[in-house]
Amino acid sequence: MELTISGVGVRLGGRWVVDGVDATPPPGALTGLLGPNGAGKTTLLRLVAGLLPPDAGAVLVPASPDAAAGDQVPVHALRSRDRARRVALLEQEAHATVPLTVREVVALGRIPYRSLWGADPDEAAVTRALAAADAAHLAERTWSTLSGGERQRVHIARALAQEPELLLLDEPTNHLDVSAQLSLLAFVAGLGVTTVAALHDLNLAAAFCTHVLVLSRGRLVAAGPPADVLTPALLREVYDVDADVLVHPRTGRPVIALAGRA
């Protein structure tokens, strides 16, 4: 999806939590949204998702799934049901309070498509989403019995059931073991769906993202391919750390080696 973040800003509690951010995440690829805690990553994701109306600027998306290039409208101006068919957001730490099965959780992603009477025009969509996220074997399990990695897979399946053109993930690798982190990001990067993921782990971002956006105190301070953006100078300025950036001997991707606080 052709996504244009244009001078977007929002005030919450009298403070500009996101302030004049301009960015164009590349279509069909994984963009990492980086920055220390409190930099405004979650708020920016909510703005991009159209869940929060901006106080300045706009987040622009194609007017319709088959709109011509450049025919864009503000995402928060879309009808909420249409928006939910095109943009999926996975929150950080989303917990269910009721004993849903995995299949029922994934079926939540079909809510934007259901008729007034609850019929889904595409009955097979849930099964496809489960299979695509490699969670089909979990379908009959109860949500509360899943491990952290399994839950995240099911959340992804729920988002895929929305059949989105734009996927927004808030810290998707939190609480996952190393192997599950790698498999999740490799999966997301290979989807071919325009994805923006807030990430804490710089090395994961460097390994899997095509493009990264770095936020600091609500402002965008750098954007571009990880190898260009993640420099020792930037890490010192934004994260207040002393780091070397190496090249991974096998993947050729940047590796951030932290030496200590700046």
């Binding site: 869940l51 909420s80 957001l89 929150e91 917990h95 939540l108 934007p112 929305q162």
Partner: peptide, 21 residues
């Protein structure tokens, strides 16, 4: 008739809003 929408609240308000509610 509208009760189906209540399912969307299972993961909280933001999740419900993201599902178009």
């Amino acid at each position: 008739v509208t009760g189906g929408r209540l399912d969307a609240f299972a993961f909280g308000d933001t999740a419900a809003a993201a599902l178009g509610i």
